[in-house]
Protein backbone atom coordinates (compact mmCIF):
# COMPACT_ATOMS: atom_id res chain seq x y z
CA UNK A 1 0.00 0.00 0.00
CA UNK A 2 1.20 3.49 -0.80
CA UNK A 3 1.40 5.94 2.04
CA UNK A 4 -1.21 8.72 2.21
CA UNK A 5 0.74 11.39 0.36
CA UNK A 6 2.05 9.08 -2.34
CA UNK A 7 -1.39 7.54 -2.93
CA UNK A 8 -3.11 10.91 -3.20
CA UNK A 9 -0.41 12.39 -5.41
CA UNK A 10 -0.51 9.33 -7.66
CA UNK A 11 -4.24 9.91 -8.07
CA UNK A 12 -5.14 6.57 -6.50
CA UNK A 13 -8.44 6.17 -4.69
CA UNK A 14 -7.12 6.52 -1.16
CA UNK A 15 -8.50 4.90 1.97
CA UNK A 16 -7.99 6.08 5.50
CA UNK A 17 -9.52 4.77 8.70
CA UNK A 18 -9.50 6.00 12.23
CA UNK A 19 -8.60 4.71 15.62
CA UNK A 20 -9.37 6.30 18.93
CA UNK A 21 -6.91 5.72 21.77
CA UNK A 22 -8.55 4.39 24.93
CA UNK A 23 -8.85 6.03 28.32
CA UNK A 24 -6.32 4.09 30.29
CA UNK A 25 -3.14 2.29 29.51
CA UNK A 26 -4.53 -0.98 28.20
CA UNK A 27 -4.17 -0.54 24.46
CA UNK A 28 -4.19 -4.22 23.48
CA UNK A 29 -7.64 -4.04 21.85
CA UNK A 30 -6.87 -0.83 19.98
CA UNK A 31 -3.64 -2.29 18.63
CA UNK A 32 -5.46 -5.47 17.63
CA UNK A 33 -8.01 -3.44 15.66
CA UNK A 34 -5.23 -1.48 14.02
CA UNK A 35 -3.48 -4.73 13.07
CA UNK A 36 -6.62 -5.81 11.19
CA UNK A 37 -6.20 -2.77 8.98
CA UNK A 38 -2.57 -3.35 8.00
CA UNK A 39 -2.23 -3.51 4.24
CA UNK A 40 -5.89 -2.58 3.75
CA UNK A 41 -5.71 1.18 4.11
CA UNK A 42 -3.28 3.89 3.09
CA UNK A 43 -3.21 5.71 6.39
CA UNK A 44 -4.77 5.70 9.82
CA UNK A 45 -5.98 8.70 11.82
CA UNK A 46 -5.31 8.77 15.51
CA UNK A 47 -7.78 11.00 17.30
CA UNK A 48 -6.76 13.66 19.82
CA UNK A 49 -8.90 13.45 22.97
CA UNK A 50 -11.90 13.10 20.70
CA UNK A 51 -15.12 14.69 21.91
CA UNK A 52 -12.98 16.38 24.57
CA UNK A 53 -12.80 13.11 26.50
CA UNK A 54 -9.41 12.41 28.11
CA UNK A 55 -7.56 9.53 26.49
CA UNK A 56 -4.01 8.51 25.61
CA UNK A 57 -2.36 11.20 23.51
CA UNK A 58 -2.46 10.94 19.76
CA UNK A 59 1.28 11.30 19.27
CA UNK A 60 2.57 8.24 21.18
CA UNK A 61 -0.12 6.09 19.60
CA UNK A 62 0.87 7.39 16.15
CA UNK A 63 4.39 6.22 16.88
CA UNK A 64 3.22 2.75 17.92
CA UNK A 65 1.11 2.43 14.77
CA UNK A 66 4.04 3.62 12.70
CA UNK A 67 6.19 0.86 14.21
CA UNK A 68 3.40 -1.59 13.33
CA UNK A 69 3.72 -0.57 9.69
CA UNK A 70 0.92 1.99 9.38
CA UNK A 71 1.19 5.51 7.99
CA UNK A 72 -0.42 7.42 10.87
CA UNK A 73 -2.22 10.73 10.60
CA UNK A 74 -1.58 12.72 13.76
CA UNK A 75 -4.80 14.52 14.68
CA UNK A 76 -3.94 17.71 16.46
CA UNK A 77 -6.45 20.03 18.07
CA UNK A 78 -6.03 23.51 19.53
CA UNK A 79 -8.22 22.84 22.53
CA UNK A 80 -5.58 21.48 24.90
CA UNK A 81 -2.38 23.25 23.88
CA UNK A 82 -1.15 26.78 23.35
CA UNK A 83 1.07 27.73 20.42
CA UNK A 84 4.23 26.68 22.24
CA UNK A 85 2.98 23.18 22.98
CA UNK A 86 1.55 22.84 19.48
CA UNK A 87 4.85 23.64 17.84
CA UNK A 88 6.84 21.33 20.07
CA UNK A 89 4.37 18.51 19.41
CA UNK A 90 4.67 19.10 15.67
CA UNK A 91 8.46 18.94 15.82
CA UNK A 92 8.11 15.92 18.06
CA UNK A 93 5.89 14.25 15.47
CA UNK A 94 8.53 14.81 12.83
CA UNK A 95 11.36 13.24 14.82
CA UNK A 96 9.11 10.28 15.66
CA UNK A 97 8.71 9.62 11.96
CA UNK A 98 5.11 10.81 11.70
CA UNK A 99 4.45 12.18 8.22
CA UNK A 100 0.89 13.48 8.34
CA UNK A 101 -0.97 15.89 10.57
CA UNK A 102 -4.67 16.69 10.61
CA UNK A 103 -5.27 20.20 11.92
CA UNK A 104 -8.44 20.89 13.85
CA UNK A 105 -9.78 23.42 16.31
CA UNK A 106 -11.19 20.61 18.47
CA UNK A 107 -14.48 19.89 20.20
CA UNK A 108 -15.23 22.21 23.07
CA UNK A 109 -14.59 20.93 26.60
CA UNK A 110 -18.32 21.41 27.21
CA UNK A 111 -18.83 18.26 25.12
CA UNK A 112 -16.41 16.13 27.11
CA UNK A 113 -15.76 14.50 30.44
CA UNK A 114 -13.85 17.39 32.05
CA UNK A 115 -16.39 20.14 31.63
CA UNK A 116 -14.74 22.47 34.16
CA UNK A 117 -11.44 22.49 32.24
CA UNK A 118 -10.06 25.68 30.71
CA UNK A 119 -10.21 25.40 26.93
CA UNK A 120 -7.10 26.83 25.28
CA UNK A 121 -7.82 27.83 21.67
CA UNK A 122 -4.73 30.03 21.52
CA UNK A 123 -4.81 29.14 17.83
CA UNK A 124 -7.57 27.60 15.71
CA UNK A 125 -7.55 25.30 12.71
CA UNK A 126 -6.64 27.86 10.03
CA UNK A 127 -3.82 29.30 12.13
CA UNK A 128 -2.70 25.78 13.02
CA UNK A 129 -2.34 25.02 9.31
CA UNK A 130 -0.27 28.17 8.97
CA UNK A 131 1.84 27.03 11.89
CA UNK A 132 2.59 23.69 10.21
CA UNK A 133 3.47 25.54 7.01
CA UNK A 134 5.85 27.78 8.96
CA UNK A 135 7.58 24.83 10.66
CA UNK A 136 7.81 23.03 7.32
CA UNK A 137 9.54 26.15 6.06
CA UNK A 138 12.06 26.07 8.88
CA UNK A 139 10.70 28.91 11.00
CA UNK A 140 8.56 28.91 14.09
CA UNK A 141 5.42 30.97 14.45
CA UNK A 142 7.38 33.89 15.87
CA UNK A 143 9.69 33.84 12.85
CA UNK A 144 12.69 32.32 14.63
CA UNK A 145 14.89 30.07 12.56
CA UNK A 146 14.78 26.37 13.41
CA UNK A 147 17.61 23.89 13.42
CA UNK A 148 15.98 21.45 11.04
CA UNK A 149 12.51 21.96 9.57
CA UNK A 150 9.56 19.62 9.84
CA UNK A 151 8.23 17.82 6.80
CA UNK A 152 4.59 17.24 7.58
CA UNK A 153 1.82 16.58 5.07
CA UNK A 154 -1.00 18.66 6.39
CA UNK A 155 -4.68 18.08 6.23
CA UNK A 156 -7.85 19.64 7.55
CA UNK A 157 -11.50 18.84 8.01
CA UNK A 158 -14.64 20.24 6.44
CA UNK A 159 -18.35 19.67 7.00
CA UNK A 160 -20.12 19.40 3.62
CA UNK A 161 -23.53 19.21 5.30
CA UNK A 162 -22.99 22.24 7.53
CA UNK A 163 -25.92 24.60 7.71
CA UNK A 164 -25.41 27.35 6.68
CA UNK A 165 -22.87 26.11 4.12
CA UNK A 166 -21.54 29.43 2.79
CA UNK A 167 -19.45 30.41 5.83
CA UNK A 168 -18.15 26.83 5.91
CA UNK A 169 -17.01 27.18 2.28
CA UNK A 170 -15.24 30.45 3.06
CA UNK A 171 -13.39 28.67 5.84
CA UNK A 172 -12.58 25.79 3.51
CA UNK A 173 -11.00 28.31 1.16
CA UNK A 174 -8.99 29.80 4.02
CA UNK A 175 -7.75 26.35 5.00
CA UNK A 176 -6.55 25.76 1.46
CA UNK A 177 -4.83 29.13 1.49
CA UNK A 178 -3.25 28.30 4.85
CA UNK A 179 -1.61 25.22 3.37
CA UNK A 180 -3.99 22.26 3.64
CA UNK A 181 -3.02 19.55 1.16
CA UNK A 182 -5.89 17.21 1.89
CA UNK A 183 -9.28 17.25 3.54
CA UNK A 184 -11.15 14.56 5.39
CA UNK A 185 -14.82 15.40 5.58
CA UNK A 186 -17.33 15.03 8.37
CA UNK A 187 -19.59 12.04 7.75
CA UNK A 188 -21.66 12.43 4.60
CA UNK A 189 -24.78 10.46 3.73
CA UNK A 190 -26.60 12.65 1.22
CA UNK A 191 -24.65 11.93 -1.97
CA UNK A 192 -26.35 14.66 -4.04
CA UNK A 193 -25.39 17.25 -1.46
CA UNK A 194 -21.86 15.86 -1.35
CA UNK A 195 -21.58 16.12 -5.14
CA UNK A 196 -22.63 19.77 -4.96
CA UNK A 197 -19.97 20.31 -2.31
CA UNK A 198 -17.33 18.54 -4.42
CA UNK A 199 -18.22 20.65 -7.47
CA UNK A 200 -17.10 23.63 -5.44
CA UNK A 201 -14.16 21.90 -3.72
CA UNK A 202 -12.75 20.78 -7.08
CA UNK A 203 -11.93 24.39 -7.90
CA UNK A 204 -9.09 24.18 -5.41
CA UNK A 205 -5.91 22.17 -5.72
CA UNK A 206 -6.57 19.87 -2.78
CA UNK A 207 -7.45 16.24 -2.25
CA UNK A 208 -10.70 15.33 -0.55
CA UNK A 209 -11.48 12.10 1.27
CA UNK A 210 -15.18 11.57 1.91
CA UNK A 211 -16.09 10.80 5.50
CA UNK A 212 -17.92 7.49 5.76
CA UNK A 213 -19.30 6.76 9.20
CA UNK A 214 -20.46 3.20 9.83
CA UNK A 215 -24.07 3.16 11.03
CA UNK A 216 -24.43 0.40 13.62
CA UNK A 217 -28.21 0.60 13.93
CA UNK A 218 -31.19 2.91 13.45
CA UNK A 219 -30.78 4.27 16.97
CA UNK A 220 -27.30 5.53 16.13
CA UNK A 221 -28.64 7.21 12.98
CA UNK A 222 -31.36 8.96 14.97
CA UNK A 223 -28.81 10.03 17.56
CA UNK A 224 -26.59 11.55 14.86
CA UNK A 225 -29.52 13.44 13.38
CA UNK A 226 -30.60 14.75 16.74
CA UNK A 227 -27.32 15.56 18.43
CA UNK A 228 -24.47 15.88 15.94
CA UNK A 229 -24.43 19.11 13.95
CA UNK A 230 -23.43 18.72 10.33
CA UNK A 231 -24.53 15.09 9.97
CA UNK A 232 -27.83 14.20 8.35
CA UNK A 233 -28.77 10.57 7.86
CA UNK A 234 -31.61 10.38 5.31
CA UNK A 235 -34.83 8.66 6.43
CA UNK A 236 -34.41 6.08 3.67
CA UNK A 237 -31.23 4.74 5.31
CA UNK A 238 -32.84 4.74 8.75
CA UNK A 239 -35.72 2.69 7.33
CA UNK A 240 -33.28 0.18 5.84
CA UNK A 241 -31.51 -0.21 9.19
CA UNK A 242 -34.85 -0.66 10.95
CA UNK A 243 -35.99 -3.26 8.42
CA UNK A 244 -32.79 -5.22 8.96
CA UNK A 245 -33.82 -5.86 12.56
CA UNK A 246 -31.63 -6.06 15.62
CA UNK A 247 -29.57 -8.96 14.29
CA UNK A 248 -29.02 -7.60 10.80
CA UNK A 249 -28.55 -3.89 11.53
CA UNK A 250 -24.75 -3.89 11.63
CA UNK A 251 -24.54 -5.94 8.41
CA UNK A 252 -26.94 -3.47 6.82
CA UNK A 253 -24.84 -0.54 8.06
CA UNK A 254 -21.73 -2.15 6.57
CA UNK A 255 -23.58 -2.55 3.27
CA UNK A 256 -24.57 1.12 3.33
CA UNK A 257 -20.99 2.19 4.05
CA UNK A 258 -19.69 -0.09 1.30
CA UNK A 259 -22.22 1.29 -1.21
CA UNK A 260 -21.15 4.85 -0.38
CA UNK A 261 -17.47 4.05 -0.84
CA UNK A 262 -18.24 2.26 -4.11
CA UNK A 263 -20.31 5.16 -5.50
CA UNK A 264 -17.67 7.72 -4.55
CA UNK A 265 -14.95 5.65 -6.17
CA UNK A 266 -16.83 4.58 -9.30
CA UNK A 267 -18.22 8.01 -10.02
CA UNK A 268 -14.94 9.70 -9.14
CA UNK A 269 -16.75 12.00 -6.76
CA UNK A 270 -13.83 12.36 -4.33
CA UNK A 271 -10.19 11.30 -4.11
CA UNK A 272 -10.81 8.68 -1.48
CA UNK A 273 -12.76 7.72 1.58
CA UNK A 274 -12.15 8.11 5.28
CA UNK A 275 -13.94 5.21 6.95
CA UNK A 276 -14.89 5.77 10.57
CA UNK A 277 -16.06 2.65 12.40
CA UNK A 278 -15.79 3.96 15.99
CA UNK A 279 -14.59 0.90 17.86
CA UNK A 280 -15.45 -1.56 15.07
CA UNK A 281 -12.30 -0.98 13.05
CA UNK A 282 -12.10 -4.74 12.57
CA UNK A 283 -15.12 -4.41 10.25
CA UNK A 284 -13.37 -1.97 7.93
CA UNK A 285 -11.64 -4.62 5.77
CA UNK A 286 -15.02 -6.28 5.11
CA UNK A 287 -16.60 -2.92 4.23
CA UNK A 288 -13.79 -2.27 1.77
CA UNK A 289 -14.18 -5.75 0.31
CA UNK A 290 -17.90 -5.17 -0.24
CA UNK A 291 -17.07 -1.82 -1.82
CA UNK A 292 -14.95 -3.65 -4.37
CA UNK A 293 -11.66 -2.41 -3.02
CA UNK A 294 -9.22 -5.26 -2.72
Amino acid sequence: MKRLKEALEAGEFTITAECGPPKGTDIAEMLEHARHLLGKINAINVTDNQSAVVRIGSLPVCRLLSEMGHDPIFQLTCRDRNRLAIQSDLMGAHILGIKNVLCMTGDHVAAGDHKTAKPVYDLESVQLLQTVAALNGGHDLAGNEMKGATNLYQGAVVTPEANPIEPQMLKFEKKVKAGANFFQTQAIYDMDNFKRFMDRARKYNVKVLAGILLLKNAGMANFLNKFVPGITVPQELIDRLKAAGKEGALECGMDIAAEQVRIIKEQGIADGAHVMAIGLENKVPEILKRAGIA
Binding site: G106, A111, P119, P229
Partner: peptide, 19 residues
Amino acid sequence: PKGILNGPCGGTNNGFCEV
Protein backbone atom coordinates in the same frame (compact mmCIF):
# COMPACT_ATOMS: atom_id res chain seq x y z
CA PRO B 1 -17.09 29.78 22.67
CA LYS B 2 -13.88 28.71 20.96
CA GLY B 3 -12.96 32.27 20.02
CA ILE B 4 -12.34 31.13 16.45
CA LEU B 5 -11.07 33.96 14.27
CA ASN B 6 -11.45 32.47 10.81
CA GLY B 7 -14.91 31.03 10.35
CA PRO B 8 -17.34 28.52 11.80
CA CYS B 9 -16.28 25.15 13.14
CA GLY B 10 -18.09 21.92 12.34
CA GLY B 11 -20.36 22.48 15.31
CA THR B 12 -22.31 25.28 13.61
CA ASN B 13 -25.88 24.10 13.82
CA ASN B 14 -28.61 25.87 11.85
CA GLY B 15 -27.41 29.22 13.12
CA PHE B 16 -26.73 27.98 16.63
CA CYS B 17 -23.72 26.59 18.48
CA GLU B 18 -23.03 22.99 19.43
CA VAL B 19 -21.86 24.13 22.84
